[in-house]
Design a protein around this nucleic acid. Structure first.
Lengths: 201, 201
DNA sequence: GTCTATAGGCAGATAGAC
DNA sequence: GTCTATCTGCCTATAGAC
């Protein structure tokens, strides 16, 4: 496939790219086929050829987002060894969306949850469940290794972390200040760092 | 004013009640004048008489929400003495919206921020600023009295608390499980409780 | 204050030519 | 695959009668 083939027309991938950005920016109820079509320089029916309904487009959007996120979590598992560093890398993953004024796709859809078609709802929940499971594993391992200290179940803390990071994005974005997110995330993770025992070196 | 006067017709107050619930449920871009009119048993033009534009209705919505919230914070100041209890009461205030599947009005609007008219944006930010200021005061007082222990500035921690609670609402709501929010909020506040010093009784 | 009637625009979606 | 043309429905908003 030549490069030009990938830079014109409305391939499914390009539609998803544009729609994803628009949803992260304005929400599922705040963007339209017309917006996407204008951005890609095509007409609305072209989009319907690739995604027959807005619900189908929305579901494809979340599914692709989830797969990409899962790949990035796997990359962290490969490249980063200790639990505290993995948590930091995870927080950075979240914070990256703030470049370009975006919200986490699924955080945005969580706000609009009540208006979403059932298919999209299930996929949004699957995103959060996956995040919670991965974080739970990191927390368990960190506690075992003594690099993290916390009380209660890893599962509950994983949920607390996901929600705190989503909330940090949500409230930092209107201020257009990435530092707001970073300071909040850093403070959050700092409370989990295991304090040195008197006997530690 | 007789009771019947307050239970029929589309007074500004009743419009705000219905619209507020709808926005907390579905978002500003997810509700319409038709929804409100149907709920109150009136026609759409009746609503335009009270609120000429949707932006005007939206702004009135946030302003009323802010005033009510400020009153409740003042009530906490009056009725609750120590800082940890004040924080707990604050978290309960937030959690109350989950009854009825609602989101915090301003948390919802923060998600839709990019699509809001300028007037509404300013009012949403004022809500968060007010929360941050109140929480900052509670944190400062708690640290002074020795009932709270934390590192860093009260302002940064206040921001972290607001965002964590908003995020807890955002992610708990799709699961229709109020316990999810409560556990997260409780864990959050527990990390701030001052540990007893060896010399304390 | 609330109504009927209606304007003007945009939404998601389809038919059918090329 | 992408287009033109079009449908139906809902949106916010206004005019003007009562």
């Amino acid at each position: 496939m030549a490069v030009s083939d990938r830079t014109k027309g409305a391939s499914a991938e390009r539609i998803l790219d544009a729609a994803e950005r628009l949803v992260q920016l304005r929400g599922y109820n705040g963007f339209s086929y017309a917006d996407v079509a204008a951005e890609l320089g095509v007409t609305k029916p072209s989009l319907h050829y690739h995604f027959p309904s807005k619900a189908a487009l929305g579901t494809a959007l979340i599914d692709r987002y989830r797969e990409r996120f899962a790949r990035r979590l796997a990359e962290i598992d490969e490249r980063v060894a200790d639990a505290p560093s993995r948590l930091a890398a995870y927080a950075d993953l979240y914070g990256a969306v703030l470049e370009g004024q975006r919200m986490c796709l699924c955080g945005m859809l969580a706000a609009e949850f009540q208006t979403l078609p059932e298919e999209m709802r299930r996929s949004v929940l699957a995103f959060f469940d996956r995040n919670e499971a991965w974080l739970g594993g990191v927390l368990r391992e960190g506690r075992r290794a003594g690099t993290l200290a916390f009380s209660g179940s890893p599962r509950d803390l994983a949920r607390a972390l996901v929600s705190a990071l989503e909330g940090a994005l949500l409230t930092a974005r209107p201020y257009e200040d990435a530092g707001r997110y970073r300071r909040t995330a850093a403070r959050l993770l700092a409370t989990l760092a295991a304090p040195r025992e008197p006997g530690d070196r």
